[in-house]
Amino acid sequence: MLKVVSLLKRAENISHEEFAKWVVEEHIEFARKLPGLRKYTVSVSNGEDAPYDSVNELYFDDEDARVAAFGSEHGQAAAADAAAHTAQRVHLLTTEHAQL
């Protein structure tokens, strides 16, 4: 299973509260439409001074599924929505090995 960890820093014109509402209520709708997405989690930071405002985790069967999802119409719309609300996005492609 491939996990994409996305670290999001809100745009300067958006408050932490506005960002939190957007990422958990609005942006999640894009994730629901991504083909091949197996699991999606969003964690919002607890303060305005955090280096990132949210950590989003997207799970796919493999790299081909990830590429297909983000290459789709819904994937491109999700990327555009994220770009409109963030100043910085960092994406880490990972393979999860252990869970407690």
Rank of each mutant, 00 (worst) to 15 (best):
residue 1 M to A: 13
residue 2 L to K: 05
residue 3 K to C: 10
residue 3 K to V: 13
residue 4 V to Q: 04
residue 4 V to G: 10
residue 6 S to N: 08
residue 7 L to W: 07
residue 7 L to S: 10
residue 7 L to Q: 09
residue 8 L to R: 04
residue 9 K to C: 12
residue 9 K to R: 15
residue 10 R to M: 03
residue 10 R to E: 03
residue 11 A to D: 05
residue 12 E to N: 12
residue 12 E to Y: 07
residue 12 E to I: 01
residue 13 N to R: 05
residue 13 N to V: 10
residue 13 N to E: 12
residue 15 S to W: 01
residue 15 S to K: 05
residue 15 S to N: 06
residue 16 H to K: 14
residue 17 E to F: 08
residue 17 E to K: 12
residue 17 E to V: 09
residue 18 E to G: 13
residue 19 F to K: 15
residue 20 A to F: 02
residue 21 K to Q: 00
residue 21 K to I: 02
residue 22 W to V: 08
residue 23 V to E: 04
residue 24 V to M: 01
residue 25 E to R: 11
residue 25 E to P: 06
residue 25 E to G: 07
residue 26 E to M: 01
residue 27 H to P: 07
residue 27 H to M: 11
residue 27 H to W: 05
residue 28 I to G: 07
residue 28 I to L: 13
residue 28 I to N: 12
residue 29 E to H: 08
residue 30 F to Y: 15
residue 30 F to C: 09
residue 31 A to K: 04
residue 33 K to P: 00
residue 33 K to L: 14
residue 33 K to D: 05
residue 34 L to H: 06
residue 35 P to L: 13
residue 35 P to W: 11
residue 36 G to P: 13
residue 36 G to T: 04
residue 36 G to L: 15
residue 36 G to S: 06
residue 37 L to T: 05
residue 38 R to S: 01
residue 38 R to G: 01
residue 38 R to F: 01
residue 38 R to P: 00
residue 39 K to M: 13
residue 40 Y to G: 13
residue 41 T to Y: 05
residue 43 S to Q: 10
residue 44 V to Y: 09
residue 48 E to R: 12
residue 48 E to D: 13
residue 48 E to F: 00
residue 53 D to N: 08
residue 54 S to E: 08
residue 54 S to V: 01
residue 55 V to K: 14
residue 55 V to C: 11
residue 55 V to H: 09
residue 56 N to H: 03
residue 57 E to K: 15
residue 58 L to F: 08
residue 59 Y to P: 06
residue 59 Y to I: 09
residue 61 D to A: 14
residue 63 E to I: 05
residue 64 D to L: 10
residue 65 A to G: 00
residue 65 A to T: 01
residue 66 R to Q: 07
residue 67 V to W: 00
residue 67 V to M: 10
residue 68 A to E: 03
residue 68 A to T: 08
residue 69 A to D: 03
residue 70 F to D: 02
residue 71 G to S: 13
residue 71 G to F: 01
residue 72 S to C: 10
residue 72 S to H: 00
residue 73 E to S: 02
residue 73 E to D: 12
residue 74 H to R: 02
residue 75 G to F: 04
residue 77 A to G: 10
residue 77 A to V: 07
residue 78 A to L: 09
residue 80 A to K: 09
residue 80 A to H: 08
residue 80 A to T: 05
residue 81 D to Q: 05
residue 82 A to G: 07
residue 82 A to M: 10
residue 83 A to R: 09
residue 83 A to N: 06
residue 84 A to I: 08
residue 85 H to Y: 02
residue 87 A to I: 07
residue 87 A to H: 07
residue 87 A to M: 12
residue 87 A to D: 11
residue 88 Q to D: 12
residue 89 R to P: 06
residue 90 V to K: 15
residue 92 L to H: 15
residue 92 L to S: 07
residue 93 L to T: 06
residue 94 T to R: 03
residue 96 E to V: 04
residue 96 E to S: 14
residue 98 A to C: 06
residue 98 A to Y: 14
residue 99 Q to A: 02
residue 99 Q to M: 04
residue 99 Q to Y: 10
residue 100 L to E: 03
